[in-house]
Design a protein around this nucleic acid. Sequence first.
DNA 1: ATGAAAGCGCTAACAC
DNA 2: GTGTTAGCGCTTTCAT
Lengths: 331, 331
Amino acid sequence: MNGGTTLKYIAEKLSLSISTVSRALKDHPDISEETKKRVKELASLMEYEPNTYAINLRTNQSKVFGVIVPEISSYFYHSFIESIEEEGKKQGYSLLILQSGDDPVAEMENLKLCRLNRVAGVFVSITTHTTHIENFLHFEEIAAPVIFYDKVPEFAACNKILSADEEAATMAAEEIIKKKKKNVLALFGNKEMSITRKRLPAFERIFIENAPETKLIIEHANSPEEAYTVTKHMLSKNEKPDVIFCMSDEILTGVMKIMQQLQIKIPDTVSVIALSNGFIPTLYFPEITYVETSGKKLGKLAFQRMIDHIAGKTFIQEISIRAKLVSGGSL
Amino acid sequence: MNGGTTLKYIAEKLSLSISTVSRALKDHPDISEETKKRVKELASLMEYEPNTYAINLRTNQSKVFGVIVPEISSYFYHSFIESIEEEGKKQGYSLLILQSGDDPVAEMENLKLCRLNRVAGVFVSITTHTTHIENFLHFEEIAAPVIFYDKVPEFAACNKILSADEEAATMAAEEIIKKKKKNVLALFGNKEMSITRKRLPAFERIFIENAPETKLIIEHANSPEEAYTVTKHMLSKNEKPDVIFCMSDEILTGVMKIMQQLQIKIPDTVSVIALSNGFIPTLYFPEITYVETSGKKLGKLAFQRMIDHIAGKTFIQEISIRAKLVSGGSL
DNA sequence: ATGAAAGCGCTAACAC
DNA sequence: GTGTTAGCGCTTTCAT
């Protein structure tokens, strides 16, 4: 295995003690230049690599971060993972990717795996059913920092890195008003979802405050199919919306399907605007105007917070990334 | 850390030796039922968890698989990862996800990381520039099994799990012929890519053999944008294609954009068929007919091969997953 | 049926 | 400047 070169082996070859070799490799000041040179030469010749597990055993820590995601197959989450991976690599960290599948039981098992792997820290987006986060808090006390991202516990005091949900919804609403749309169909996800609970009120408020005359119809859809159906229904009415707002990529895909089917001209007949992670809107023509909530940026921020935390800056923080309007021509 | 319960701790509490405790926990036949019971009770009370690193250190192996992907942000790869993750979890394996970004240097670094982490095996999709795979072969000799998937070395003898590229291209071609299309625009990716080199000849051959009268135009596109441009150009000609074949999701997105822009009726005016990993085609109306090359299935197969390999079935194999036609209404 | 001891590879406190 | 020793937590051989 691994060529199997160990400190012991090098020590024997050079008739030195193991500790001398260890220190030489670490440029310990006590060791003579001469010895250092001999040791390093042989080490590189033998392609010596320290045994990670021996080190982990001693330090009870590993250079691995646990990343718990509800599901990998979502543009948002894998762009998050990608970003953590890139940042981590620079500092010698690897990633343990764990899927919770929105199941609190799996989530706890994953947390346990993080403990068993003595991870240096955990990034977690909690499931929609996670109510108790004591386990995470406890984990943080006895094991390693926990950074919550995206789906975070609502009340507890902990490190949270958030998409700018309110800001994004606000920006979309403002853009709609700016474009003088009067008849808004706004599609949101499941009412229980935390992102819905954030995006919806922020969205509504802008209209109430800035354009109370707007006719605003709020609908909820739990899947692209539901979004399709709801939209189809609304478009069949006499008074059609002049703009459709989609809370997420998932909803956008459902809406766009019926738009294509009915061959509705965007933005001439009906405009479209969405909140998105940034890939889906570019698939259509015209490209859909959207407010971006980027997994990549979120990842960078979460990673930085983790590094700070590890470096001892253990104060609690709640950070949001900035939302960004990307104009596509659909509004 | 971890509540910190160790064998030693349990042993002391129970006035037993460490080895007795270790054996009791493993149901070793030598140990009396009485002792087993006492040990197990205390262990579960203390939430004893064996220290992974100590075990890894002794066994020089870990229950972790390395997964090297060119990029996480591709539906194909993350569905592959997802599938490996699910299968692995059942057997107690975790995943070390490494991105090569299509860079051979990063690829080698990732392989090294796999070695340092004493992974139980490596799944790798090589970069387009990887020419030497000695390192992988060497790794396999000294460390752990290597399963190549998707992008695999062409000539070397090694375990390969492949998408059914030829079969998929063949099926698409046959479907086109079956639908009596006479004027085919076929868009392929970069000529150097191994999937292009497999899909293109298989696709062409079917027409030559079964429908030589078909007018077949082959074009290459390296990006959605290029696919868009090429398609736009071809659609502006007098003799328009009656069907467009897209080698990949990437190309499909480019093609669909211009189709939407020109408001071309699918399949009435022009039909579309693609080879796909299965998500993108469902975004459009009508849904695009495609031949599926599923990352998920590939993952399952690759995982099974890995398990077999670890179980000692070290013979070399080259396996392809079956392609599947999914009808969407676009052809 | 149980215990003692060695060793996996590494680090660090403590000699000399 | 270099060596000795103990120990991280676990498994396993060899006693008893």
